[in-house]
Amino acid sequence: MKAVTLGPEGTYSHRAASAVADEVAFRESVTSIVEAVAESEFDRGVVPIENSIEGSVTETLDAIADHEVSAVKEIVTPIRHALLAQSEEFSVVASHSQALAQCRSYLEAEYPDADLEAVASTARGVEHARENRDVAGIGHPDNAGEDLQVIAEGIQDRTSNATRFFVVAPTDQSSQAGGKSSIVVYPNANYPGLLLELLEPFADRDINLTRVESRPSGERLGDYVFHVDFAAGLYEDRAQEAIADIESIAENGWVRRLGSYDTEHVLY
Protein backbone atom coordinates (compact mmCIF):
# COMPACT_ATOMS: atom_id res chain seq x y z
CA MET A 1 0.00 0.00 0.00
CA LYS A 2 1.24 3.49 -0.86
CA ALA A 3 0.39 6.54 1.24
CA VAL A 4 1.02 10.24 0.82
CA THR A 5 1.65 12.68 3.65
CA LEU A 6 3.40 15.92 4.57
CA GLY A 7 7.07 15.91 3.67
CA PRO A 8 9.93 15.84 3.54
CA GLU A 9 11.05 12.62 5.21
CA GLY A 10 11.13 12.80 8.99
CA THR A 11 7.94 14.76 9.74
CA TYR A 12 5.57 13.57 12.44
CA SER A 13 3.12 12.92 9.61
CA HIS A 14 5.71 10.66 7.99
CA ARG A 15 6.04 8.71 11.22
CA ALA A 16 2.27 8.29 11.41
CA ALA A 17 2.03 7.28 7.74
CA SER A 18 4.69 4.62 8.22
CA ALA A 19 2.27 2.84 10.55
CA VAL A 20 -0.23 2.28 7.73
CA ALA A 21 1.83 1.98 4.54
CA ASP A 22 5.00 0.30 3.32
CA GLU A 23 5.73 3.09 0.86
CA VAL A 24 5.28 6.78 1.66
CA ALA A 25 5.33 9.71 -0.75
CA PHE A 26 5.34 13.37 0.19
CA ARG A 27 3.51 16.60 -0.61
CA GLU A 28 4.02 20.11 0.71
CA SER A 29 0.43 20.82 1.80
CA VAL A 30 -2.52 19.04 3.36
CA THR A 31 -4.78 20.20 0.53
CA SER A 32 -2.57 18.58 -2.12
CA ILE A 33 -2.58 15.33 -0.12
CA VAL A 34 -6.37 15.21 0.11
CA GLU A 35 -6.68 16.11 -3.58
CA ALA A 36 -4.31 13.28 -4.56
CA VAL A 37 -6.35 10.74 -2.57
CA ALA A 38 -9.67 12.07 -3.94
CA GLU A 39 -8.29 11.53 -7.45
CA SER A 40 -7.17 7.97 -6.51
CA GLU A 41 -3.48 8.72 -7.05
CA PHE A 42 -2.75 7.09 -3.69
CA ASP A 43 -4.38 4.38 -1.60
CA ARG A 44 -4.12 6.43 1.57
CA GLY A 45 -3.35 9.91 2.77
CA VAL A 46 -2.30 10.79 6.32
CA VAL A 47 -3.12 14.30 7.50
CA PRO A 48 -3.09 15.97 10.93
CA ILE A 49 -6.59 16.77 12.11
CA GLU A 50 -6.19 17.90 15.73
CA ASN A 51 -3.52 18.70 18.31
CA SER A 52 -4.10 18.53 22.05
CA ILE A 53 -2.54 22.00 22.56
CA GLU A 54 -3.40 23.98 19.45
CA GLY A 55 -6.70 22.34 18.52
CA SER A 56 -7.97 21.55 15.04
CA VAL A 57 -5.84 21.88 11.90
CA THR A 58 -8.04 24.17 9.82
CA GLU A 59 -6.42 23.34 6.47
CA THR A 60 -7.35 19.70 6.98
CA LEU A 61 -10.94 20.56 7.91
CA ASP A 62 -11.34 22.69 4.81
CA ALA A 63 -9.70 20.11 2.53
CA ILE A 64 -11.93 17.23 3.60
CA ALA A 65 -14.99 19.46 3.24
CA ASP A 66 -13.97 20.47 -0.29
CA HIS A 67 -13.01 17.02 -1.61
CA GLU A 68 -14.74 13.65 -1.73
CA VAL A 69 -12.71 11.35 0.55
CA SER A 70 -13.41 8.95 3.39
CA ALA A 71 -11.83 8.60 6.83
CA VAL A 72 -10.79 4.98 7.47
CA LYS A 73 -8.63 5.26 10.60
CA GLU A 74 -7.33 7.73 13.11
CA ILE A 75 -3.80 7.62 14.47
CA VAL A 76 -2.88 9.28 17.74
CA THR A 77 0.77 9.85 18.53
CA PRO A 78 2.56 11.80 21.26
CA ILE A 79 4.56 14.78 20.03
CA ARG A 80 8.05 15.17 21.50
CA HIS A 81 9.65 18.35 20.23
CA ALA A 82 13.34 19.14 20.35
CA LEU A 83 15.30 22.23 19.35
CA LEU A 84 17.89 21.25 16.75
CA ALA A 85 20.73 23.45 15.45
CA GLN A 86 24.34 23.35 14.35
CA SER A 87 25.32 25.28 17.50
CA GLU A 88 23.73 27.20 20.33
CA GLU A 89 24.21 30.43 18.37
CA PHE A 90 21.24 31.13 16.09
CA SER A 91 18.76 33.93 15.47
CA VAL A 92 15.92 32.15 13.65
CA VAL A 93 13.71 29.23 14.70
CA ALA A 94 12.01 27.57 11.73
CA SER A 95 9.26 24.96 11.91
CA HIS A 96 5.64 24.25 11.07
CA SER A 97 3.31 26.88 12.49
CA GLN A 98 1.67 24.28 14.76
CA ALA A 99 5.05 23.25 16.22
CA LEU A 100 6.02 26.88 16.83
CA ALA A 101 2.72 27.42 18.64
CA GLN A 102 3.10 24.23 20.68
CA CYS A 103 6.49 25.47 21.95
CA ARG A 104 5.47 29.10 22.42
CA SER A 105 6.20 29.36 26.16
CA TYR A 106 9.65 27.76 25.85
CA LEU A 107 10.66 29.99 22.93
CA GLU A 108 9.43 33.16 24.62
CA ALA A 109 11.32 32.30 27.81
CA GLU A 110 14.59 31.01 26.32
CA TYR A 111 14.85 32.79 22.94
CA PRO A 112 12.73 35.94 23.14
CA ASP A 113 14.76 37.72 20.46
CA ALA A 114 14.72 34.90 17.92
CA ASP A 115 12.71 35.35 14.75
CA LEU A 116 10.09 32.63 14.24
CA GLU A 117 9.72 31.36 10.67
CA ALA A 118 6.75 29.18 9.72
CA VAL A 119 7.57 26.59 7.04
CA ALA A 120 5.69 23.71 5.42
CA SER A 121 6.66 21.04 7.98
CA THR A 122 8.84 20.32 10.99
CA ALA A 123 11.21 18.35 8.75
CA ARG A 124 11.53 21.33 6.41
CA GLY A 125 12.56 23.49 9.38
CA VAL A 126 15.18 20.92 10.35
CA GLU A 127 16.46 20.98 6.76
CA HIS A 128 16.85 24.76 6.99
CA ALA A 129 18.81 24.33 10.22
CA ARG A 130 21.05 21.77 8.54
CA GLU A 131 21.75 24.22 5.71
CA ASN A 132 22.15 27.39 7.78
CA ARG A 133 24.10 27.87 11.03
CA ASP A 134 21.87 30.81 11.92
CA VAL A 135 18.70 28.67 11.96
CA ALA A 136 17.35 26.23 14.55
CA GLY A 137 14.58 23.76 13.74
CA ILE A 138 11.91 22.12 15.88
CA GLY A 139 11.29 18.44 15.35
CA HIS A 140 11.67 14.96 16.73
CA PRO A 141 15.13 14.52 18.37
CA ASP A 142 15.91 11.62 16.04
CA ASN A 143 15.90 14.11 13.16
CA ALA A 144 19.15 15.66 14.38
CA GLY A 145 21.29 13.07 12.62
CA GLU A 146 25.02 13.70 12.59
CA ASP A 147 24.86 17.32 11.45
CA LEU A 148 22.79 18.93 14.22
CA GLN A 149 22.92 19.19 17.98
CA VAL A 150 19.94 18.55 20.20
CA ILE A 151 19.95 21.88 22.01
CA ALA A 152 16.96 20.96 24.19
CA GLU A 153 14.37 18.18 24.34
CA GLY A 154 10.77 18.15 25.49
CA ILE A 155 10.27 21.83 24.68
CA GLN A 156 6.53 21.55 23.99
CA ASP A 157 4.40 23.60 26.38
CA ARG A 158 2.72 20.49 27.80
CA THR A 159 4.08 16.99 28.22
CA SER A 160 0.69 15.60 27.20
CA ASN A 161 1.12 17.04 23.69
CA ALA A 162 -0.35 14.64 21.14
CA THR A 163 -1.60 14.88 17.58
CA ARG A 164 -4.48 13.04 15.98
CA PHE A 165 -4.14 12.13 12.31
CA PHE A 166 -6.81 11.07 9.84
CA VAL A 167 -6.06 8.29 7.40
CA VAL A 168 -8.09 9.25 4.34
CA ALA A 169 -8.97 7.03 1.38
CA PRO A 170 -11.08 7.22 -1.78
CA THR A 171 -14.81 7.25 -1.07
CA ASP A 172 -15.38 3.71 -2.36
CA GLN A 173 -13.33 2.46 0.61
CA SER A 174 -15.47 4.13 3.26
CA SER A 175 -16.56 1.82 6.07
CA GLN A 176 -19.52 1.80 8.44
CA ALA A 177 -17.63 -0.32 10.98
CA GLY A 178 -15.63 1.24 13.78
CA GLY A 179 -15.93 2.80 17.18
CA LYS A 180 -15.99 6.40 15.92
CA SER A 181 -17.48 8.20 12.94
CA SER A 182 -17.17 11.60 11.28
CA ILE A 183 -19.56 13.64 9.19
CA VAL A 184 -19.41 17.07 7.57
CA VAL A 185 -22.61 19.12 7.51
CA TYR A 186 -23.40 22.16 5.39
CA PRO A 187 -26.94 23.25 6.35
CA ASN A 188 -26.95 26.23 3.95
CA ALA A 189 -28.99 28.08 6.55
CA ASN A 190 -28.53 30.43 9.48
CA TYR A 191 -31.19 30.96 12.11
CA PRO A 192 -31.47 30.95 15.94
CA GLY A 193 -31.17 27.44 17.34
CA LEU A 194 -29.68 25.87 14.18
CA LEU A 195 -26.65 24.40 15.93
CA LEU A 196 -28.82 23.07 18.76
CA GLU A 197 -31.07 21.37 16.19
CA LEU A 198 -28.03 19.74 14.58
CA LEU A 199 -26.76 18.38 17.89
CA GLU A 200 -30.02 17.24 19.49
CA PRO A 201 -30.36 14.08 17.34
CA PHE A 202 -27.17 12.76 18.96
CA ALA A 203 -28.19 13.70 22.51
CA ASP A 204 -31.62 12.13 22.00
CA ARG A 205 -29.95 8.81 21.18
CA ASP A 206 -27.25 8.95 23.86
CA ILE A 207 -24.42 9.34 21.31
CA ASN A 208 -21.37 11.11 22.68
CA LEU A 209 -19.92 13.86 20.50
CA THR A 210 -16.12 13.83 20.62
CA ARG A 211 -15.55 16.95 18.51
CA VAL A 212 -17.68 19.69 16.97
CA GLU A 213 -16.00 22.33 14.83
CA SER A 214 -17.33 25.07 12.56
CA ARG A 215 -15.54 26.51 9.55
CA PRO A 216 -16.59 29.33 7.21
CA SER A 217 -18.26 27.92 4.11
CA GLY A 218 -16.70 30.56 1.87
CA GLU A 219 -20.11 31.26 0.37
CA ARG A 220 -21.02 34.28 2.50
CA LEU A 221 -20.20 35.86 5.85
CA GLY A 222 -21.82 34.02 8.75
CA ASP A 223 -22.32 30.82 6.76
CA TYR A 224 -20.67 27.71 8.20
CA VAL A 225 -19.74 24.10 7.59
CA PHE A 226 -19.84 21.86 10.67
CA HIS A 227 -17.47 18.97 11.34
CA VAL A 228 -18.83 16.42 13.80
CA ASP A 229 -17.09 13.37 15.29
CA PHE A 230 -19.06 10.99 17.48
CA ALA A 231 -18.51 7.77 19.41
CA ALA A 232 -20.63 5.33 17.42
CA GLY A 233 -20.30 3.37 14.21
CA LEU A 234 -22.40 4.16 11.16
CA TYR A 235 -23.58 0.55 11.23
CA GLU A 236 -25.59 1.34 14.38
CA ASP A 237 -29.27 2.13 13.99
CA ARG A 238 -29.01 5.06 16.39
CA ALA A 239 -26.28 6.67 14.26
CA GLN A 240 -28.27 6.18 11.06
CA GLU A 241 -31.36 7.68 12.69
CA ALA A 242 -29.44 10.69 14.00
CA ILE A 243 -27.92 11.40 10.59
CA ALA A 244 -31.32 11.05 8.92
CA ASP A 245 -32.62 13.78 11.23
CA ILE A 246 -29.65 15.99 10.39
CA GLU A 247 -30.16 15.45 6.66
CA SER A 248 -33.73 16.70 7.09
CA ILE A 249 -32.47 19.83 8.85
CA ALA A 250 -29.83 20.36 6.14
CA GLU A 251 -32.21 19.69 3.25
CA ASN A 252 -31.05 22.86 1.48
CA GLY A 253 -27.40 21.89 1.92
CA TRP A 254 -25.65 18.54 2.27
CA VAL A 255 -24.32 15.97 4.71
CA ARG A 256 -21.15 14.03 3.92
CA ARG A 257 -20.49 10.77 5.76
CA LEU A 258 -16.71 10.44 6.00
CA GLY A 259 -17.10 6.96 7.50
CA SER A 260 -16.41 4.96 10.64
CA TYR A 261 -13.01 3.98 11.92
CA ASP A 262 -10.98 2.76 14.88
CA THR A 263 -8.10 4.43 16.70
CA GLU A 264 -4.48 3.32 16.59
CA HIS A 265 -1.97 4.71 19.09
CA VAL A 266 1.56 4.96 17.72
CA LEU A 267 4.49 5.67 20.05
CA TYR A 268 7.88 7.04 18.99
Rank of each mutant, 00 (worst) to 15 (best):
Y235R: 15
R164L: 03
N190E: 11
E200P: 10
E146A: 09
I207W: 09
Y224E: 11
V167M: 06
L196R: 13
R133P: 10
V150W: 14
I207N: 11
V126C: 12
G178D: 00
R220A: 15
D172C: 03
L116R: 14
R220T: 15
G218M: 05
S181G: 05
L116H: 13
L234K: 15
L107N: 08
R164N: 01
H140G: 14
P192C: 05
E236Y: 03
I138M: 04
Y106T: 07
N161D: 13
V119R: 06
D157L: 04
E108H: 15
R164V: 02
V168K: 01
G154C: 08
L196H: 12
Y186T: 09
P112Q: 02
T210K: 11
L209A: 14
S217C: 04
E131H: 06
P141N: 05
T159I: 06
A123N: 06
E108K: 14
V167H: 04
E197W: 10
G145P: 09
I138Q: 03
I138R: 01
V212T: 07
V119N: 08
Q176E: 13
D115C: 13
P112E: 03
P192Q: 10
E153D: 13
R215A: 08
G178T: 00
G233P: 06
V119Y: 05
N190H: 11
S217M: 04
D113L: 08
N208S: 07
T159Q: 14
E108I: 10
Y106A: 13
H128S: 13
R220F: 07
G193T: 13
P141Q: 01
N188M: 06
Y224N: 13
I207V: 14
D134M: 01
V184R: 03
R124F: 08
T171C: 08
G179R: 11
S217R: 03
P141C: 03
L198W: 03
T163F: 00
P192W: 03
E213F: 10
S121P: 05
G218E: 04
V212W: 02
N132Q: 13
G125I: 03
F165V: 01
V135T: 10
P201F: 02
G145T: 06
V126P: 01
G218D: 05
S182K: 15
R205V: 11
D223R: 12
G154T: 05
D172G: 02
T159N: 11
Q156W: 00
G139S: 10
P201V: 00
S160I: 04
F165A: 01
E108G: 15
A136Q: 00
L221H: 15
D134I: 01
D172W: 09
S217Q: 02
